[in-house]
Design a protein around this nucleic acid. Structure first.
Lengths: 137, 137
DNA sequence: TTTATTTACTTGTTAAAAGCAAGTAACATT
DNA sequence: AATGTTACTTGCTTTTAACAAGTAAATAAA
């Protein structure tokens, strides 16, 4: 498990929570791509190692960024789901996407998307969150 | 230097740019705390090693997140300054601060600050950027 | 119903990165 | 001229990540 030092500053807390590249990429899988299974995470383009994935999922569960439950239709599978704590990172993810859209010369983000994100921010945030709202009572 | 793999996705680009804890903490020093010198960065509470700091500053310069120039008043010193590419990460930093303010039990961020950030977002973003605008022609 | 396959890991080893301590070189101060 | 400051570099140790192989439980196929 990675080393974590939190000094009380909000950025320090953020970096102690997900200050490695994999945690954000796993959150992308769950929140933006709607993946929920271990083998789906394993297939991400960046190529995560199985021991690192297992380690990060445990850490994220410990941090209460995700929960996991058995898939009743296939008892071998776990379903990984984001908590509200993770979903509250959607604004961070959105700003990362806007920034990358502006500065990545090989970005896949279209100018139309960036404009939509920037100019209809509240709506975009709601839309990103919507697929996870059905869980609520 | 840290390994970087960018697959075209905006989050992948973000993580390839600053997907380690130190780069964001150095950006905090420069953008939020207005530090500009090597020895000031060395004094950050998280305790960065001198070789890692030197490595990251080089990488950030290469990425055009910062520039450096000699201090004319003390020729030993370099002045490190953020580029527009770095300043455009202010919205990301702001969202990190809001999230940490909500979830860090030992946060130093007050509820009043979070409310100000959330409800007067555009104004807050402008204020964070203002100290760096004087450089413009 | 044994046999193979899927799923989610664990374990062991190697490679890379971070952390630590000491040293250096240019400039500045006393 | 000697001492201190500033921004590093270099060498070594420790930690983390990456790679490869193996395992165990659940399911599917023969």
């Amino acid at each position: 498990m990675m080393y974590k030092k939190n000094t009380g500053c909000p950025f320090s807390f953020s970096m102690a929570s997900f200050g490695d590249k994999w945690t954000i990429l796993i959150l992308r899988e769950i929140i933006a791509i709607h993946h929920r299974y271990y083998d789906e995470f394993m297939q991400m383009a960046e190529g995560i190692s199985t021991n690192i994935l297992a380690d990060r999922l445990k850490d994220m569960e410990k941090q209460k960024l995700i929960t996991r439950r058995r898939d009743t239709k296939n008892k071998r599978r776990w379903i990984y789901e984001p908590t509200d704590k993770a979903l509250d990172l959607i604004p961070v993810l959105l700003e990362l996407a806007i920034w990358s859209g502006k500065y990545d010369p090989d970005t896949g983000v279209t100018q139309a998307h960036i404009e939509a994100y920037t100019q209809r921010r509240a709506k975009t945030l709601k839309e990103w969150r919507k697929p996870f709202e059905s869980r609520k009572p």
